[in-house]
Design a protein around this nucleic acid. Structure first.
Lengths: 157, 157
DNA sequence: TGAATAAAAGACATCGTTGTCCTTTATGGT
DNA sequence: ACCATAAAGGACAACGATGTCTTTTATTCA
């Protein structure tokens, strides 16, 4: 499936935080989980991890929550993938053969190196900020899980 | 990681069988597992599945084992991927959003549709037979797991 | 018919991912 | 100081992918 669920939750979480920065300094996990339709405690674990890795800032207590810096907005998606899924997709043989390389290629080596190269390029050259340029409401819909029928988020903002 | 271990084992198993067809009518699971460096019983399960799906033929008892038809050699890799991993990679949003599509795209939709399209094309247009054209010994090395130093398979054939 | 061989079948174990729950720690407001 | 809030931390559960083991079924050969 290319990415883990963890990566998906992490990216959507970060995007949601980024999107809310003009409204509030900190976003709470509860709000994120509800708006995104994601398991609350699992998302909490992921966020904690990202905080530890310096990708997010967190503040405990009332009015606390998560926030992110401009530096994070400029990070390539590859960095996030590294923190969640690791880079096995790019560093390992698709058939997981240890000895596979250009001089001793597995049967799929060259075809897949091309694909992996293309994918890596996207992940390297696309930043968090690059994903953000859109109408805010529409954007939130596009990262929420449920089948959106136009009625759910309208009255919250 | 793009493909599961199961897919890798399945493909390598099929390729090994295909490669042995000029020497013996049937290939035994024991031999496959040893030569490929793959867990024997797990490989057995996978082969059983492929037999049930019509991709392989099996015969029980002495001199029995697995064999495959020319039709199988002409099958695209996508068919094997479907039987093992399913086609979620192509049919689902990379972020697993149910509502994601061209008119309501997730933030990664268009970049990833391109990658997925490229990958799908490779899997659709490449057949088992396409992977086979090589020196036999060299080819077996290329699908064996261990780090090959030139000494391991030499005395077996 | 009996013995050996090999796949099929199914029970069970391990492990990583995903997910839940409860307790602890930090912070802000009163 | 006390209370409420919210993240951090850790224990544990559920599940699917992966892997092992034993029994059953089919086939060959003598």
């Amino acid at each position: 499936m290319i990415f883990s669920k963890t990566f998906g939750y992490a990216l959507r979480g970060i995007l949601y935080i980024a999107l809310m920065q003009d409204e509030k300094r900190f976003v709470q996990i509860e709000e994120m989980a509800q708006k995104l339709g994601v398991p609350r405690h699992f998302l909490g674990k992921i966020m904690k991890r990202l905080v530890k890795e310096g990708m997010l800032l967190s503040v405990k207590g009332p009015y606390g929550g998560y926030t992110l810096s401009d530096a994070t907005l400029q990070m390539p998606l590859l960095r996030l993938e590294d923190l969640t899924d690791g880079l096995g997709t790019f560093n390992n043989c698709v058939l997981r053969l240890r000895a596979c390389n250009a001089t001793n290629p597995c049967p799929l080596h060259f075809q897949m190196e091309r694909i992996k190269g293309d994918l890596r390029r996207v992940m390297e050259t696309t930043t968090i900020a690059d994903l953000l340029h859109k109408d805010k409401k529409e954007f939130i819909n596009s990262i929420a899980t449920y089948e959106f029928d136009g009625s759910m988020l309208e009255n919250e903002n």
